[in-house]
């Protein structure tokens, strides 16, 4: 082989790099997540189905409700539900951090539902954060200026 002095170490480094998660986490065990389930009531579908398919169901739900105007979901056993993540799902699962987040953190997924939908436990929104990156470029974290409530004229004429 030509250049074997470079190729072989290269292959070794590559293999070590791609297997990084395996040997880095070897021997460590992480406790299985324990999401807090509502004490009473039933979910729209069986626990097993929801565990494996809630993401597909939510995706179909949002399309049906927003795009087709189909707000009512009739489950496989004939029960009817108002389609709404924020107002229906979270009525029973009334704590996002104890329910959604527990599994999502374990599975290292970050669904962006909550960028718009408001979790039940949120009462007020936080002020914008200043980060080092924004400071580097001199970007003020908060927008300034006159409020829209004051007048109905235009900023500039």
């Amino acid at each position: 082989m030509y250049n074997s002095d470079k190729v072989i170490p290269g292959i070794i480094i590559f293999v070590l790099f791609v297997t990084f998660p395996i040997w880095w986490n070897h021997g460590k065990s992480v406790a299985a997540p324990e999401p807090e389930l509502p004490k009473k009531g039933r979910c729209v579908e069986s626990k097993e189905y929801m565990r494996s398919h809630h993401m597909q169901l939510l995706n179909v739900w949002r399309n049906e409700a927003i795009r087709q105007g189909m707000r009512i979901y009739t489950s496989s056993d004939g029960a009817r539900f108002w389609i709404s993540l924020q107002n229906e799902c979270m009525k029973c699962h009334n704590n996002k951090s104890k329910f959604c987040d527990r599994c999502h953190q374990f599975a290292a997924v970050e669904p962006y539902c909550w960028n718009c939908h408001i979790p039940p436990e949120t009462k007020k929104f936080k002020a914008p954060k200043a980060s080092r990156l924004l400071k580097l470029f001199g970007v003020p974290p908060v927008l300034h200026g006159s409020s829209q409530a004051e007048s109905y004229g235009h900023a500039e004429h």
Binding site: R71, Y73, I83
Partner: peptide
């Protein structure tokens, strides 16, 4: 594949809200 997975969900019924 995602389409196939969704089809399993679609077996249930979706209807417009009554009283709208």
């Amino acid at each position: 594949v995602p389409g196939f997975l969704n089809r399993e969900v679609k077996a249930r019924a979706y209807t417009p809200p009554p009283g709208a």
